[in-house]
Design a protein around this nucleic acid. Structure first.
Length: 433
RNA sequence: GCGAUCGUGGUGAAGUGGUUAACACAUCUGGCUGUGAACCAGACAUUCGUGGUUUCGAUUCCCAUCGUUCGCCCCA
């Protein structure tokens, strides 16, 4: 019987990969312009890395990780996100020793979560993100938010909704958590079972419950603003003001909390609603963290980071046709005619490869009808026809597949001619678009 | 973890307790020995996700299982 791909995983084949490459290039380039270079860390890590960073109270750690014992009886986990690995490597390599802060890293690669697949959500998915560690300032918080915003712009996104909120520092958060706990304890008997569970684990998470009856209770709940320390309050208003002067639009969302336990101070999400009203949840999200580095065995350094879901971006980019120029093509498709010496044709094919033009040949001579169809399927710009006549006279018959013009070119001149006609044709194509 | 939905060729799909399993597109061959159309004639599912049950007989009913798509939860 046929072996199927694992649930929630997908193959991306041939031409479809071009969209992903375009997106990944654009994201990496934006990160680069802000001074972030890629860190590439392993896909498997010790389970403990995630229980300590993402947090035991998070859904991710409690029920969504691919965890297994290896042959040495170590508990390992396929990473459910990439931040933890980045912080671990910063600690392991003592990148903080030079005191040259912030340490900037970007990352891109697969992550795994055991969830039910649905729109924009898979069990294997890819994340792109950045982390800035060691500088505890609203400046770097804003830089990361802005980087994400511009990354989306570079993919031609318009109408991005940036939601932001602050969770405050430790003191703010502790006070607020206690206030919430006290408040919800009185009302919990009327609330949904998930909220009952959240009250025990992390009362902050009750705030983004969507059950209607619960919403009424949540509206009356204590608000984070009233529990922020003056430091946190000031930091958040500086953040907001700077975003304003950068002309980055945002919505304050007091109920925005995050499912990962390590966040404090500013948190944010990028949302996009397509023209047909479809949403894939957040395209990207991030926030500031105060204790993550210390928790993973490093010094007491703060950080800020964000991440995007590549598949979600790809789906929107494709649905909304945000990128136009991503199509594959061959410069030349070589057609052997009749019982021409196929080895000679192959030699020419090889020669064109070496000149650097994407080209392909038909490996056997067929009806011209069939050969032209193949050329069209590959979006070739030109066909090169070679039969006995051409070989004898040492010429090539080159046909422009768009205009149907056909010329005969001496084999010796091919290098020069190829360069000119390909350039010209690309210019023409771009003008047409 | 919960709820719904759907699984028939390379693709889109119709259909029925007993059929040669329609139709269309794509592909291949020939009509037409070196120029992409159209047309015509052919070819193309040892079979209807997998396993089992009922039945004289199952692609069709039933059960299970795997997978798809979508929603909840949560998340990127």
């Amino acid at each position: 019987m046929e072996v199927k791909p694992v649930k929630g995983t997908h193959d991306i084949l041939g031409a479809d990969i071009i969209l992903y490459q375009r997106i990944e290039d654009a994201l990496a380039k934006t990160a680069h312009t802000y001074g972030y270079l890629e860190f590439r860390t392993p896909i498997i890590e010790h389970t403990e890395l995630f229980s300590r960073s993402v947090g035991d109270s998070s859904d991710i750690v409690r029920k969504e990780m691919y965890t297994f014992l290896d042959k040495g009886n170590r508990s390992l986990t396929l990473r459910p996100e990439l931040t933890a690995g980045i912080i671990r490597t910063i600690v392991n390599n003592k990148l903080y020793a030079s005191q040259d802060f912030p340490i900037k890293a970007s990352y891109i690669g697969p992550a795994f979560r055991y969830e039910r697949p649905q729109a924009g959500r898979f069990r294997q998915f890819s994340q792109f993100g950045v982390e800035a560690v060691g500088l505890d300032s609203h400046l770097i918080d804003v830089e990361v938010i802005s980087l994400g915003y511009n990354a989306l712009k570079s993919l031609n996104f318009i109408d991005i909704t940036l939601k932001i909120n602050t969770l405050g520092d430790d003191e703010s958060r502790n006070n607020y958590r206690e206030a919430l706990r006290a408040y919800f304890s009185e009302h919990i008997k009327d609330m949904c079972s998930d909220c009952k569970e959240r009250l025990k684990i992390n009362p902050l998470r009750i705030l983004d419950c969507k059950v209607e009856e619960d919403q009424k209770i949540i509206k009356q709940a204590p608000r984070i603003q009233d529990y922020l320390t003056s430091d946190s309050k000031e930091r958040f208003s500086k953040t907001v003001n700077l975003l304003d002067s950068l002309k980055i639009k945002f919505d304050l969302d007091e109920n925005l909390v995050r499912g990962l336990d390590y966040y404090s101070e500013v948190v944010f999400e990028y949302h996009y609603i397509s023209r047909d009203g479809k949403s894939f949840g957040a395209l990207g999200a991030g926030g500031h963290y105060s204790h993550l580095v210390e928790e993973l065995g490093g010094p007491n350094l703060a950080g800020v980071g964000l991440s995007f879901g590549i598949e979600r971006l790809a789906q929107v980019v494709e649905n909304e046709k945000l990128l136009f120029d991503a199509f594959p093509f061959l410069a030349f498709y070589i057609m052997p005619i009749g019982d021409v010496n196929i080895e000679k044709v192959y030699e020419l094919n090889e020669k064109i490869h070496r000149l650097g033009y994407p080209s392909e040949m038909a490996y056997e001579s067929k009806s011209l009808k069939a050969l032209f169809k193949k050329a069209e399927k590959r979006s070739a710009l030109f066909a090169i026809l070679i039969g006995d006549e051409e070989l004898e006279k040492e010429v090539l018959t080159i046909k422009n597949l768009r205009t149907k013009e056909q010329t005969s070119v001496a084999l010796a001149d091919f290098d020069n001619v190829a360069n000119n006609i390909v350039e010209e044709e690309l210019v023409e194509l771009n003008e047409e678009r």
